[in-house]
Each structure stands twice: as C-alpha cells, then as structure tokens.
C-alpha cells in the first residue's frame, strides 16, 4: 500500500543526469514515523507540489507543440478555419518560396558569425579577466548589455551606427576615414548585426569560461609555467583543453542562440535593408503576424527547429568525442 522502500524509479532518476547526487542512504528506515502520519500525506504531497508544473506542461508545452505540428499541414488565415493541405507548406517553402533559402543562409551566417567571433573573443577575455584584480567591477561592466532590454540595445546601436552622425562614423571621420553605411548597405548591415550580437553575448560567455578556468587546479598551470612555457602558450595548450566542456557548452548555446533569436534583428534592421539581414525565425514571425499565413509559418518554424536540433546534436557528439 504505502510506499516505504525506495521507489523503483529512483535509481534511474539519478542516472538521468550524470554527476547529480541523490540521497545516498536508501529511505527504508522510517516505518515508525510513517505510522503516526496522516494517511497518504507523503504520497500525495509531491503531486500537489508538482500540480502547477504538470498543468503547465499540458497546456503550454504539449498542447501547443501538438497544435503547431497540426498547423504545418494546413493552410490557415485565422479569419477562417484551417484547411488540410498535407505536405504542401513544406513543399512550397523548400522548393518554391523565393526567399526561404536566403533567410536560411542568413541564419547560418548570423549563427556562424556569433560562434566564430564570439567564442574566441570571450575565451580571450576570460583568459585576461581570470588573472586580473578588481574582478567584480570588470564583471559588472561586461555583463551590462545582458541586463538591458533588446529594444534599447537595438536603438542604441542604430544611433551609434548612423551613417552620418553616429558616433562610430564621426570617430572614423576624425581619423580621416569615411565609415561605411553600417545599416543601409546589405553586407555591412549583416556585419553590424553580428557585431552587436557578439557584443551582447560577450560578458555572459566570458563568465562561463572564467568560472571553468577558476575550477582548474592551479598546480597544473604552475607546473607548466615552471617548465618555461609562456602565458599564451599555457593558455592554448593546457587551459583550453582542460575547460573543453565549457567550450563545447558555449559553442553549442551560441549556435542555437544565433539560429533562433530574432528579437534583436527585428528591432535593429527588421531584416533589412532589402532582406539582407532577414533570418528564418524573423521571416516566420512576419509570415504569421503580418501575412497571417499560420500554416506556412508553422511549417517554417518546424523546419528551422529540425535543423537546429540536428546540428546541435551533431556538435555535441563531435566536440565531445574529440575531447575523449
């Protein structure tokens, strides 16, 4: 009747997340305590505590995902009701849509740029930061963009990058250079988007790296330094391999962020000029809430999600194997 021995699922649960400690002592020895308790209370309590989560999971996770999958097989302008079209939306997006592949290309450029520039820069910054004095102040400054709303970030950079009167081109002008049209030239607009994303994520990624560096046994570094290796050399050949899990984590999360995060682009360029920074997630959003094509937009979201999922898994496998 009442569960007195360790639940059968407990061991499996502790196995699900490696490195997470569960109660080491099996909970068998409390029959006396159980007997004076209100009957059923310990069995019921966890379910009561979990009730909000379970309701939420049903209403805001399972239901929407199911609804979304259904919508990908329909044509639906929300003024009417959805009509079943099978795989037509997928077929349209992948073979006939004039810009879908362009937006996918832009998505990869943004994500690739964020990984290619963001990861090494934050790693280098962490290397310097981890041996500096006044870390609390540096940290606060580097983390500042992360606590700022994205509309402010987007507009602040619009002001800075204004072709004629922005601080950046004024500065370049003082040095005798004519700065580029940061936001009105297609190529430069893409550069601007990546620069701002790297700037925005720098502090967060740096903190992950510096926490990992702090976890290294100082004796290892000391030994290498005594052997005559230079600072940068020690960092590249000893520190980085030792914090590989953090490198994998930041690389994969940066990539996922770059693939799916469109708030900054929406507020900063709205995909422009002339679609040069239009990414798939943003295209999907406009398809849904401007063109009211809910079926097609859902299919676009699903394709993007599938691509992200596959690549994230591949990255994890690849980067982890190389570590072993």
């Amino acid at each position: 009747m009442r569960k007195v021995a360790t639940a059968p699922g407990a061991d499996a649960a502790s196995g699900a997340v490696p490195g997470v400690a569960t109660g080491a002592v099996p909970r068998v020895a409390r029959p006396g305590a159980m007997d004076d308790r209100a009957p059923g209370a310990p069995r019921l309590a966890p379910w009561l505590f979990l009730a909000p989560l379970l309701v939420f999971a049903a209403v805001f996770l399972v239901l929407p995902l199911g609804f979304s999958i259904y919508l990908t097989f329909t044509r639906w302008n929300p003024l009417g009701s959805p009509s079943w079209v099978g795989l037509k939306q997928y077929e349209y997006l992948l073979t006939r849509d004039p810009v879908f592949w362009d937006t996918l290309g832009h998505t990869f450029i943004v994500a690739g740029g964020l990984v290619l520039f963001g990861v090494p820069l934050s790693l280098a910054l962490a290397a310097v930061f981890s041996r500096a004095k006044g870390r609390r102040v540096w940290r606060a400054i580097f983390y500042l963009p992360q606590v700022t709303n994205i509309v402010a970030i987007a507009y602040i950079w619009q002001f800075l990058l204004d072709d004629r009167y922005g601080l950046v081109n004024r500065g370049l002008g003082l040095l005798g250079y004519a700065g580029p049209d940061w936001l009105t030239d297609g190529t430069w607009a893409m550069v601007s988007v990546i620069v701002v994303m790297v700037w925005y994520e720098l502090g967060k990624n740096m903190l992950v790296f510096s926490a990992a560096i702090d976890g290294i046994d100082p004796q290892v570094i000391e030994a290498a330094t005594l052997d005559g290796a230079s600072g940068p050399r020690v960092f590249a050949s000893i520190t980085v391999p030792l914090i590989r899990p953090a490198v994998v984590f930041v690389t994969v999360t940066s990539f996922i962020t770059g693939m799916g995060w469109f708030a900054l682009i929406l507020a900063m360029t709205n995909g422009g000029p002339r679609g040069a920074t239009d990414v798939t997630a943003l295209y999907m959003y406009r398809m849904a809430f401007e063109d009211l094509r809910m079926g097609r937009a859902s299919a676009a979201a699903m394709i993007l999600f599938a691509i992200i999922a596959v690549i994230a898994v591949l990255q994890f496998r690849l980067l982890r194997e190389r570590a072993a």
Binding site: F60, P64, F67, G260, F262, Y285, A297, A301, L304
Partner: peptide
C-alpha cells in the same frame, strides 16, 4: 522541455 526554442510556441500559444 528546455530543448524547445521559444519561436516554436509563439503561434500556437497565441491562438490557444
């Protein structure tokens, strides 16, 4: 549940 990106939920939750 943490694996699902936010953009997947915008359309369905809006209509729910």
């Amino acid at each position: 549940a943490q694996m699902f990106p936010f953009f997947l939920f915008i359309i369905p939750i809006f209509f729910l």
